[in-house]
Design a protein around this nucleic acid. Structure first.
Lengths: 188, 188
DNA sequence: ATAACCATGTAAATGGTTACATGATTAG
DNA sequence: CTAATCATGTAACCATTTACATGGTTAT
């Protein structure tokens, strides 16, 4: 699924500018499972416009570039619906953080430690962010996706907290369960 | 982090052919956080060889293409170590499955159901696979990464089992907790 | 017999990132 | 006064995917 199709999806939720679409990918509801930058969004919108799958209303603004608000057309909706009915490709994950943990033995302890803390903080913040969201009036599919994100962020943060001893022998946290198997957080 | 660097990483674990490296990405320890196909692995190995970062021993085999076994050189190890000390890029996730759940309302129930079952089965199988692995003699970094994978697969499967009612109103599973907020599996 | 697995590789096409280019406004 | 945010876009570059090309072996 390319950025073009994803933009179409974002636009089914309501009109938006390229700038606003980017925000939905980086902070909004899509941030849990997709991302895209300006360099792919703007050209995608251009192509969608040329194909008649979106409309564009240019709002002139003083001392700013004209704001271009895009709306999906019925043709665009049909194309998006069709795309949704393809068989999904398998998930693609690329985590350089995990590569670093995997090869922990080759890293300076300082570097490992800062990478670890940064990653854990990311998950904590993301979990907290989702927890703070209001669920009223959100369609169930979106709630499901959001909850999945939350479950992942919480499981990740919890796993990291409980298994940091695998990477840092020094800090023997106050552990109730001094196992030698990594814990999963679900089987206690 | 490109496939070239990742191949170097795989080779720090021991010699391997392109074919074997691919398997490590799709079934082996790297499958939780990276993937790569032949089309990127073979050219990557070619470049690494040209740069002197790996050596290659060609073993002629009867009625088969010669098997090329690659070994990392000291220069290759140094390059990989340096790459590990860069700041990691943020995780990149692309899940078409989640896109489909997010837009569940636009899908045929049949399609949604088959996509859902397929995804859940993937997580169950992956979790079971990790559970079956032997941990003896595995360096802690790898155990940490493996455990993270397991925690994720289990949290994902659990979340899907407990929140399927959000996508399929009909099947009200035997729920002990008839909440209206999606559950995360950690807060009961 | 059929599918899956072993085994390597190339070329074209796709798609996305990064850097460049520009510049006002607002909040700290 | 500095950083962040608003706001759009292009072009060169890079990496990866997909399709093609080949063919024997092993398990069902």
């Amino acid at each position: 699924m390319d950025v073009k199709t994803l933009c179409l999806g974002v636009l089914t939720l309501g009109e938006a500018s390229g700038y606003e679409i980017k925000k939905q990918f980086e902070e909004g509801p899509f941030s849990y499972f997709y991302d895209a930058g300006y360099g792919s969004i703007y050209p995608a919108l251009g192509k969608l416009l040329a194909e008649g799958l979106v409309d564009c209303t240019e709002t002139a603004q003083e001392r700013r570039p004209a704001k271009k608000v895009y709306t999906i057309t019925p043709a665009g909706e049909a194309v998006f619906r069709e795309a949704l009915h393809q068989r999904p490709a398998r998930d693609r994950i690329r985590s350089e953080y995990m590569v670093m943990f995997f090869f922990a033995q080759l890293l300076d302890e300082d570097h490992l430690r800062s990478v670890f803390e940064e990653y854990l903080t990311q998950f904590r913040r993301a979990a907290e962010h989702v927890r703070g969201l209001d669920s009223t009036g959100i369609p169930p599919g979106r709630l499901f996706a959001r909850g999945f994100g939350r479950a992942f962020f919480e499981a990740a943060a919890r796993y990291m907290e409980e298994n940091r001893h695998l990477l840092f022998d020094g800090d023997a946290e106050d552990e109730e369960t001094p196992d030698n198997e990594p814990m999963t957080g679900t089987d206690r």
